[in-house]
Simulated scan of single mutants.
Amino acid sequence: MISDRKDDHVRHAVNHQRHAVGANDFDSVTFVHHALAGIDADEVSLGVEVAGKHWATPLYVNAMTGGSIDTGEINRKLAIAARETGIPIASGSMSAYFRDPAIAGTYRVLRQENPHGVVLANVNANATVDQARSAVDLLEADALQIHLNAVQEVVMPEGDRSFGAWPAQIERIVAASAVPVIVKEVGFGLSRQTVTWLREAGVTVADVGGRGGTNFARIENDRRVGGDFAFIESWGQSTANCLLDCTGVTGIDIAASGGIRSPLDMARALALGAKATGVAGVFLETLVSHDTQTLIDKIETWLAQLRTILTVLGARTPADLVDTDLLVTGDVATFCRLRGIDAAALAHRSPGGANRKHREGVTTHE
């Protein structure tokens, strides 16, 4: 039954990706173009620091699948793509492995095909400490993801209906974990209050996992007889809104996933404060519709294009994007107003505005 559900999730996710509406809230975030801000491309490095570890890029393959023969093969191909492009990769939820250790190979393949890469194990918030340790051990994982998916669970016909124990269980796992812990939403967003709580619980990274990408409420509703939960498909905050909501929250790294459609969305998310950006649906659809090499080519193209964007913006590293000027408009600006966020300040962040004298020490006559 669990294997069937995993296959259902992939099928519905790919189908939704193929018919996805193009717009999301990242379109309400625009870089102010300063025509003399550019630098030389060879000055740009894509390296970032996440959870105290150096990642070669701010892009990672986010949690997708595992638990059946078909999804094991998908994981194998994803791992090859991650290995060949040097980007981190997360497993899908390993709950199926806890119920049936015989399917361990459908997850273990992520490490077998990518022996020297950054690999993240993934469990739900009901996992025991021993299960979390087992997941990390199986993948020799560099970090542990705990996914939060209450909305998905209530729509899922066979899903959980009890979530009150999650906070205490997260604290137990964090206290016992030998690797950094990342807590992520699965498409409904993390609020400022939630991220602050996660920081106090000792979580190292919060992946805001906002609305705009794979919609698990819609996927689970498609699996329901009668599809009677359509009203909840727009639940939650977008990734752009989540990042803005977390402005000023320190002591925890912020990652962004959910609706990252392009290198420009990656740059927008990084400029809004994310240390790294996770992609799942776009990469899954590319792999299933084409092949591993096509996915490798896409990832390499995205990284090259991200480098180009940083070059034009004058950002030597992804972290430097937080000093670029942004215009926030539309529904995102409304969200900021209602949540007490000064969106206008984002338009005046760069020290030099339209010229480079602040970087090069050039003296000009005004």
Results as ranks from 00 to 15, higher is better:
A143D: 05
Q169W: 02
Y60Q: 03
D130P: 02
S238N: 07
R359E: 07
K77E: 13
Y97M: 10
G248S: 05
I296C: 04
G22V: 14
L110A: 05
A201S: 10
I260V: 15
T294K: 15
T106C: 01
Q193M: 11
W166M: 10
N24G: 08
L338K: 12
E140R: 12
R307D: 03
D342L: 05
G210E: 00
A13W: 06
G105T: 08
S68N: 08
D160L: 02
G258F: 07
R192S: 05
Q145A: 06
A20G: 04
K53G: 09
L120D: 01
S93D: 03
T277S: 15
G187C: 07
G361E: 07
A23V: 12
S177K: 14
I296Q: 10
R76N: 06
T30N: 13
A269C: 09
K53W: 06
A267D: 01
M266E: 04
V332G: 01
D253L: 09
D100Y: 02
E84L: 14
D291L: 00
S177H: 05
L346M: 12
I170F: 01
V29T: 04
A81M: 03
L139V: 01
E185Q: 06
G353Q: 08
R349S: 04
S28R: 04
M156L: 13
T286I: 06
S234K: 15
D265F: 11
A135R: 09
G281W: 01
R359F: 03
R356G: 13
R339T: 13
A240G: 12
Y107F: 15
A201Q: 11
R339N: 15
A230Q: 13
V44F: 10
A217S: 15
M156A: 11
D40V: 00
P167R: 05
A165F: 14
Q169C: 00
A240K: 11
I87Y: 01
F98C: 06
A175P: 08
I254A: 03
P167V: 09
M94D: 03
L120H: 13
V332F: 07
L59W: 01
G226I: 10
R356V: 06
D42G: 08
S28L: 10
